[in-house]
């Protein structure tokens, strides 16, 4: 085939693919962070999706998606189904008591930051008859509350809570939320008063939907990351999570992972002392996720928080990490 024909064939192929996939591309374009790239991609793909829709070119994709039972994949998120009803007052007066006869249904969910502590926690409680894990760790990496286009927690969580009826949920959100809001309704840069208010509304919505059926929630704050700029963003988001958790005292316990994962000098550290005082790698090379020791520290903090909310036989308070070991520079 002559090179000129190759170029034309390639161009035709990409245009055909773009028209057939226009709905999915438009959704993906809107899922980008605010900025000129998102604006251009959003406008271009909106036009493409319009043309595709008018001439019914989007039908093969729709039919194929329907045949696979995934018709909702391309649906754009308009108004969020946030069920925040505000904090319940008074908070749960007494701690629920669980036993082998009445085990605590435990549900673990969130973004990738639950991926490492989840299995460690499930392993630790695997022989405790007073705790019944509800499935495995329900992690959805690269998701959060800011980009429902990528994964809509506001639709997903109420369905999960209704289906599983957990007594205790351990959740973490926010690692992918240090961005501006996006969506069909427009975009808002991170950190503006409007952003902070909307994020608080979303965090409250998540907390209320998890506790709506009477369950309790351990809300894991974001761990201190290695990047100072990211740490500043996450500190703001942690403030919101902590504040919303305090409004729901007795139902929601907030776990401060900035403190738990700092070194003796109060800074981010890749290496932290383990239970015997030996320095071990606690954080992944990305400065965000956990190595086994980090996951264990988080797990111990979760167990403490569960004990704060409920009485579970055999789930003793966790020993504090030995203090004062010298930090190791990154």
């Amino acid at each position: 085939m002559p090179a000129g024909h190759v170029l034309v064939a390639l161009f035709i192929g990409l245009v055909v693919a773009a028209l057939l996939n226009a709905q999915g591309m438009h959704k993906q374009a809107l899922a980008q962070g605010p900025g000129i790239g998102r604006d251009i991609a959003g406008t271009l793909t909106a036009g493409l999706a319009g043309v595709s829709g008018i001439f019914q070119i989007d039908q093969p994709r729709k039919l194929l998606k329907a045949a696979l039972g995934r018709s909702g994949d391309d649906k754009l998120v308009g108004k969020l189904a946030i069920t925040a009803k505000g904090p319940k007052a008074p908070a749960a007066p007494t701690k629920p008591v669980y036993s082998a006869a009445k085990p605590m249904g435990l549900y673990l969910t969130g973004d990738s930051l639950i991926t490492d502590p989840g299995p460690v926690l499930l392993d630790k409680i695997s022989t405790n008859p007073a705790i019944k894990p509800l499935g495995v760790t329900d992690a959805h990496a690269a998701t959060g509350l800011v980009q429902p286009e990528i994964f809509n927690w506001f639709d997903y969580l109420p369905q999960q809570i209704k289906a599983l009826r957990p007594d205790m949920t351990v959740a973490t959100f926010g690692a992918n939320d240090g961005l501006g809001f996006t969506g069909v309704a427009g975009a808002e840069e991170f950190g503006t008063p409007a952003w902070l208010a909307e994020y608080a509304r979303r965090v409250a919505g998540v907390m209320d939907s998890i506790t709506a059926k009477g369950g309790q929630l351990v809300m894991l704050g974001l761990p201190i990351p290695s990047d100072p700029a990211l740490a500043a963003r996450w500190a703001k988001m942690n403030e919101i999570q902590k504040s919303e958790a305090e409004k729901r005292k007795g139902l929601v316990a907030y776990v401060d992972l900035f403190d738990k994962l700092k070194d003796a000098k109060g800074n981010y550290a890749d290496f932290l002392p383990d239970a015997s005082g030996q320095l071990q790698r606690a954080r992944s090379s990305d400065g965000i996720h956990y190595e086994p020791l980090g996951a264990t520290i988080v797990t111990d903090a979760i167990i403490d928080a569960i004990n704060e909310l409920a009485t579970v036989p055999g789930l003793g308070a966790q020993p504090a990490a030995p203090p004062g070991a010298a930090p190791v520079a990154r």
Partner: peptide, 19 residues
């Protein structure tokens, strides 16, 4: 013809994307 090959490739790209 080359244009038919291009169009078929575009269709297959959509199928791969959906699957």
């Amino acid at each position: 013809p080359y244009y038919a090959q291009g169009a078929a490739a575009g269709f297959l790209l959509m199928v791969i994307n959906v699957l």
